[in-house]
C-alpha cells in the first residue's frame, strides 16, 4: 500500500516535470508554430538565473518564481526582436536560427561561468509516505505545474488578452483588420513562452542541477510532449504529460531506467502514428 502511494507520488512528479518542460514550448510551438530548438537552453538560462541569484543572497523562492521567468522572459523578448520576427512563417529557417542560438548559448554560458557552477539544493526536505520517503519539493513542483497549466488556460480562455492572442494565432490578417497589431501580439506571446520556460528552468534547478549542457537532456522530451498533445496545447500538454509520465515512471519502476526511456519514446511513436495530430487533434478539440 505504501509502495503504491510512493509510486503514485512519483508519477505525479514525473507528470509535473513534463508539464513544466513542455508548457513554454507549447506556447511558442503550439501557438506560434515556431520550432524553438534553443528551448533546452532557455531552461538552462532559467536554472542559471535561479542558481546565480540564490548564490548572491537572493531568497531561493524569489529567485525561482520571479527572477528566472523575468530574466528569461526579457531574454526571449530580445531574441524575438533580433531574430525570430524576421523568420515568421519560415519554419526551416527558424529551426536553423534557433539551433545556432542553442549552440551559441551553451558556448557563451560555458565561457562566462565555466563548467562548474554552485547549484541550489531543494528546499523543504522530505515527508513520509508510510514507510517510504518522498520529496516535499516534488509536491511543490506538482502544485506549480497545476497552477501554471490552470493559469495559462484561464488567461487564454477568459481574458481579453487571451482572446486577442488566440484570434491572432488563428488568423493574423483578420485580427489586424480588427485593429490588433499582430507583431506586438507575437512578441508578447514569445516572451510569455520564454518566461514560462525560464520559470520551469528555475523550478527544476534544485532537482536537476545547473550545467551549460543541461538543456540537451530536456529538449527531446519537451518536443515529444508538445507534439503528442496536439493543437489545443494547454489541454494537450496536460494530457500528453499524464500519459508519458505514467508510462515512463511505471516502466522505469518495473523494469530498468534504460527500458523506461525506451518505453517513453516507443509510446510517443505509437501515439503519433495513431493520432498524427496529437491527442487534441481527435479528442477535446474545442479546448485550448
Amino acid at each position: 500500500m505504501d509502495l503504491i502511494g510512493l509510486t503514485g507520488f512519483n508519477i505525479l512528479v514525473a507528470i509535473a516535470t513534463l508539464v513544466l518542460l513542455a508548457l513554454g514550448l507549447g506556447v511558442i510551438y503550439g501557438m506560434m508554430r515556431i520550432i524553438n530548438l534553443a528551448h533546452g537552453e532557455f531552461l538552462m538560462l532559467g536554472a542559471y538565473a535561479t542558481a546565480l541569484a540564490t548564490n548572491h543572497g537572493v531568497n531561493i523562492w524569489i529567485s525561482m518564481l520571479i527572477v528566472s521567468p523575468l530574466v528569461v522572459g526579457i531574454f526571449g523578448l530580445l531574441v524575438e526582436r533580433l531574430f525570430i520576427r524576421f523568420l515568421y512563417g519560415r519554419m526551416i529557417d527558424t529551426m536553423l536560427a534557433t539551433w545556432g542560438l542553442s549552440l551559441a548559448l551553451i558556448g557563451l554560458v560555458t565561457t562566462l561561468f565555466g563548467t562548474t557552477v554552485q547549484g541550489v539544493s531543494a528546499p523543504l526536505g522530505g515527508f513520509a509516505i508510510g514507510r517510504y520517503q518522498g520529496s516535499l519539493y516534488g509536491l511543490f513542483l506538482v502544485a506549480c505545474a497545476a497552477a501554471m497549466l490552470g493559469g495559462l488556460y484561464a488567461l487564454l480562455r477568459t481574458t481579453r488578452f487571451g482572446l486577442i492572442v488566440r484570434a491572432t494565432m488563428q488568423n493574423p490578417n483578420m485580427a489586424a483588420a480588427l485593429g490588433v497589431s499582430p507583431p506586438r501580439i507575437y512578441m508578447a506571446t514569445f516572451a510569455l513562452g520564454s518566461a514560462l520556460t525560464g520559470l520551469a528552468g528555475g523550478l527544476l534547478a534544485p532537482v536537476s542541477g545547473t550545467a551549460p549542457n543541461m538543456g540537451v537532456a530536456f529538449v527531446a522530451k519537451s518536443f515529444i510532449t508538445v507534439l503528442g498533445g496536439g493543437a489545443a496545447f494547454v489541454t494537450g500538454t496536460g494530457l500528453a504529460s499524464t500519459l508519458f509520465g505514467i508510462i515512463d515512471e511505471i516502466a522505469t519502476e518495473r523494469t530498468t531506467p534504460v527500458f523506461g526511456e525506451v518505453a517513453l519514446l516507443l509510446s510517443a511513436v505509437i501515439l503519433i502514428r495513431v493520432l498524427p495530430q496529437g491527442i487534441t487533434g481527435r479528442f477535446f478539440r474545442r479546448s485550448t
Binding site: 512519483n10 514525473a14 517510504y132 516534488g138 536537476s208 543541461m214 519502476e253
Partner: peptide, 9 residues
C-alpha cells in the same frame, strides 16, 4: 537521464 525518482523509490 536526469530523473531518478523511480529509482529512489
Amino acid at each position: 537521464v536526469t530523473n531518478f525518482s523511480a529509482t529512489i523509490g
